[in-house]
Nucleic acid binder design. Structure first.
Length: 629
RNA sequence: GCCGAUGUAGCUCAGUCGGUAGAGCAACGGUUUCGUAAACCGUGGGUCGCAGGUUCGAUUCCUGUCAUCGGCACCA
């Protein structure tokens, strides 16, 4: 047996120091009294230990970093001389099942930090030593199950048998803290209280794959990808979808007295030098050079700098404030290759952007109105969301007094709107505090979309002013805001949230008209024409068998299928079938039109979304920085 | 950008232990006009991501490169 090499304890090792410790079993009674969520978190954390024990068994030289529970399972970050391969996962799974099968007890011992350091030094567990360095207390705890010992704050389950509903999932690489190299291997697994939950989670994973917008988008003929293109190529159906969404956006902002502008894509670098982007954002910008190779022009990565130019194009009065200026112009950002992801993260996209110029006393009411607006919009898509309030970061610009006032008014607005939110200390932008809105989709995943940010810096940098009632000038405050985030990302979220089945008001093709036989085609054509004239998006499907056309419409997730045969032709009715809803009966065309108008005007959410969000309980936002070690 | 993996027809995938490849769907042509999830017959389609190297010979092995995937970092 391996007595002296690196790695944690191996089977059969004896160590006088370890056996001299006072090991205490985890209290089973107390565990049983915990809430299901607390139990699940422990199951996952303990599963990470079981994974590490399995790795120690298989590869004794493995070094361990951190292994916390996550909202969907757990992982352990490890370092190994020979990199792990996909094939190794099966043997790790088998070893873990063995350990879980043994129902080994989890035991804890408190030790002086210095002794723990000596122990992990001997075991050449360099990452554990780094973790130890950051622990302020003089005593630390060790947990053991079987012969595996880990530095760990706990808590754990009473024994490994509680972690049987367990599956090893993926391998990936992660950075260890701030270091670029060497990177660690992250082995991810999922663990549940009951086998039934594990099954449901595996069903969820296959659902995620099925709903992937990168597969569904091309399948539904919305867009396609090409290696040469900086973003997706949008097909006619995708363009229709975008146009519907943008029409909805314009409708919502015009109700709230926004004005819309359209500025160029391309600017001399002076604009960005003035805005601060040249110093703070240059590496994400596409920059053009002149004949001498000097930076010259750049594509705008945000709409804010040139909106300042618009504000400055005329003398402004206090009477104009709050001045709400929207712009849906194309933005270009040179994102890191590894960040690109379908249409969710591209180098070329459009935000539902707006900048609101206001006086300090407007902030609270304006932010409250924005919160109400985004609530209304997300509700239309039945998207849940969480609000995060980010406060002054360590390095900030402007005066402390202004910051305090701004934070107070943002917080007051959140409270006035009756919203729950979490405070993210020090995570605000350098130019002002912000409210970030994370959408939670039907698969329980979070996406940052909406944002409301206060900005004191741009008005300063562009020397913006408005004239007050007394004739003196004052500097306005700017609020940056977006609700969809980027239209492309929002469409991606919608595709995955809805599984590609859009509500009728939004669907690129709202329905198909299916004549039974050739003799019905002229009448079917006239039905399509009537619907099109009224602005509805219906196509004629006259080739192939009826069965084939129905199947095609179903796979394309078309909301309405209108079958027309002898009977329907005779009395000007349509036999209505709805997507996944089956036949809805035959009724007059006029009645259908009424129904369609209702869908359009009220933006009815007429799709059934398979919910998985109840699956997710447990800690969120796990990072290696604050993970329980 | 970092680590790992992957790249075969429009799509999903098979195959070649080094002798230039095959299926289903889609497309195209013909027949069929049908009452609610695939009518029938036939045809075409691939410099096996790209560039170099090794070899008598490379889609297969090696190197580089581009892209994608899973994460990290970054972020709308």
């Amino acid at each position: 047996m391996n007595q002296t090499s690196s790695g944690n304890l191996t089977v059969g090792e004896s160590n006088a120091w370890l056996s001299s410790l006072e090991w205490q079993a985890v209290d089973a009674k107390a565990f049983n009294q915990l809430s299901p969520t607390e139990q699940l978190i422990r199951i996952r954390h303990s599963s990470a230990h079981i994974m590490a024990a399995a790795l120690t068994q298989l590869f004794p030289e493995t070094e361990f970093a951190t292994g916390p529970a996550t909202p969907q399972g757990y992982f352990y970050d490890i370092k190994k001389s020979e990199p792990l391969k996909e094939e190794d996962l099966a043997s790790i799974q088998a070893e873990m099942d063995k350990i879980a099968g043994k129902s080994q007890a989890f035991e804890v011992a408190s030790v002086p930090k210095a002794e723990a350091i000596a122990y992990f030094k001997e075991k050449q567990q360099h990452y554990k030593l780094q973790v130890l360095e950051r622990i302020p207390s003089e005593t630390v705890t060790l947990y053991r199950n079987g012969n595996f010992i880990d530095l760990c704050a706990g808590p754990h389950v009473p024994h490994t048998g509680l972690c049987r509903s367990n599956k090893v999932l993926t391998l990936s690489a992660v950075h260890w803290r701030d270091e670029e190299k060497p990177s660690l291997t992250r082995i991810t697994g999922t663990a549940w209280s009951r086998p039934k939950d594990l099954e449901r989670y595996i069903e969820f994973l296959s659902e995620v794959k099925l709903r992937d917008h990168r597969t569904l988008g091309p399948q539904l003929d919305l867009f396609s990808f090409h290696p040469w293109a900086a973003s997706a190529l949008w097909h006619p159906h995708g363009v229709t979808l975008r146009n519907q969404l943008m029409a909805f956006w314009r409708e919502t902002i015009s109700e709230k007295d926004y004005i819309e502008i359209l500025n160029p894509l391309l600017y001399k670098k002076e604009l960005f030098e003035t805005s601060g982007h040249w110093d703070h954002f240059q590496e994400n910008m596409f920059i053009f050079r002149d004949a001498e190779g000097e930076p010259d022009f750049a594509l705008k990565p945000m709409n804010c700098p040139d909106t300042m130019l618009y504000f400055r194009s005329q003398l402004r009065s206090y009477r104009e404030l709050p001045l709400r200026i929207a712009e849906g112009q194309i933005l270009h950002r040179n994102e890191a290759t590894g960040a690109l992801h379908g249409i969710m993260r591209t180098r070329n996209f459009i935000q539902d952007d707006a900048h609101i110029f206001l006086a300090p006393e407007h902030v609270e009411a304006e932010v409250q109105a924005l919160l109400e607006m985004l609530d209304r919009i997300y509700q239309i898509f039945q998207l849940n969301y969480n609000i995060k309030f980010s406060t002054r970061p360590e390095s900030y610009l402007g005066s402390l007094d202004v910051w305090n006032k701004a934070e107070a008014s943002l917080q007051a607005a959140l409270k006035a709107a009756g919203k729950e939110f979490v405070i993210d200390e020090g995570e605000g932008a350098f130019y002002g505090p912000k409210i970030d809105i994370n959408i939670q989709d039907s698969l329980g995943r979070e996406w940052q979309c909406g944002t409301i940010q206060l900005d004191f810096q741009l008005p300063e940098r562009f020397d913006l002013k408005y004239v007050k009632p007394d004739g003196a000038t004052e500097r306005p405050i700017v609020v940056h805001r977006a609700i969809f985030g980027s239209f492309e990302r929002f469409i991606g979220i919608l595709i995955e949230h809805l599984g590609g089945a859009f509500p009728t008001w939004l669907a690129p093709v709202q329905g198909v008209v299916l004549p039974i036989a050739e003799r019905h085609i002229p009448h079917a054509e006239s039905v399509v024409k009537q619907l099109k004239t009224l602005g509805f998006r219906f196509d004629l499907a006259s080739n192939e068998s009826v069965n084939y056309r129905i199947r095609h419409a179903e796979t394309q997730k078309t909301p309405y299928m209108l079958v027309i045969g002898d009977r329907e032709m005779a009395d000007n009715t349509v036999a209505v079938r709805k997507y996944t809803g089956g036949q809805k009966g035959t009724y007059p065309l006029a009645q259908l039109i009424e129904e369609l108008c209702e869908h359009r005007d009220q933006r009815i959410f007429d799709v059934v979304v398979k919910e998985f969000s109840s699956l997710f309980r447990g800690p969120s936002d796990v990072s290696t920085e604050d993970a329980p070690y």
